[in-house]
Amino acid sequence: MQKFFHTQSSLAVICLPLLIIGCASEPVSVAKPEPEQIISGETMLRESQGIASLGERWKSGKQLVERGNTMVNEGEAKIEEGNRLISEGNKIIRESEEHYKNIKK
């Protein structure tokens, strides 16, 4: 039993100074979130004008793409028509050459 009291008193002697030191030290500060900065009207105006400019630039790019696609489609249609004309012309040339050969015989 005497051992128990000796151990208990030793623990008390060790824990008491630790408790006093812990209570006396500076409290741990919790990081406070920075308050949001208030945006000025001039800043909002400047940023909104920049965004509007980006929107206009995007719109211009979209129009160019649409015009380009239209031109490509028209070009493909012209190429198909050109190929059809070439085929028809070659057919007429062959038929004419065959008729000519038949006439010469």
Rank of each mutant, 00 (worst) to 15 (best):
P17V: 02
P17G: 00
L18I: 01
L19I: 04
L19N: 03
L19G: 00
I20Q: 04
C23A: 15
A24V: 03
A24H: 06
S25Y: 04
E26Q: 09
E26N: 08
V28W: 12
V28R: 04
V30S: 06
V30D: 02
V30C: 04
A31I: 10
K32E: 10
P33L: 04
P35W: 00
P35Y: 03
E36C: 04
Q37R: 13
Q37M: 07
Q37A: 14
S40Q: 03
T43R: 04
L45H: 09
G50N: 08
A52T: 00
A52I: 13
A52L: 14
S53M: 06
S53N: 10
G55V: 07
G55T: 07
W58S: 09
W58D: 12
K59Y: 14
K59H: 05
K59C: 11
S60D: 11
S60L: 08
K62M: 07
K62D: 13
K62H: 13
Q63C: 10
Q63K: 14
E66L: 14
E66H: 02
R67F: 01
G68C: 13
G68F: 10
T70M: 15
T70C: 14
E74M: 15
G75S: 00
E76P: 06
E76S: 07
E80V: 03
E80K: 06
N83A: 08
R84C: 07
L85T: 06
I86T: 05
E88V: 02
G89F: 09
G89E: 13
N90P: 00
N90A: 06
R94P: 03
R94S: 10
S96Y: 04
E97Y: 12
E97K: 15
E98Q: 13
E98G: 08
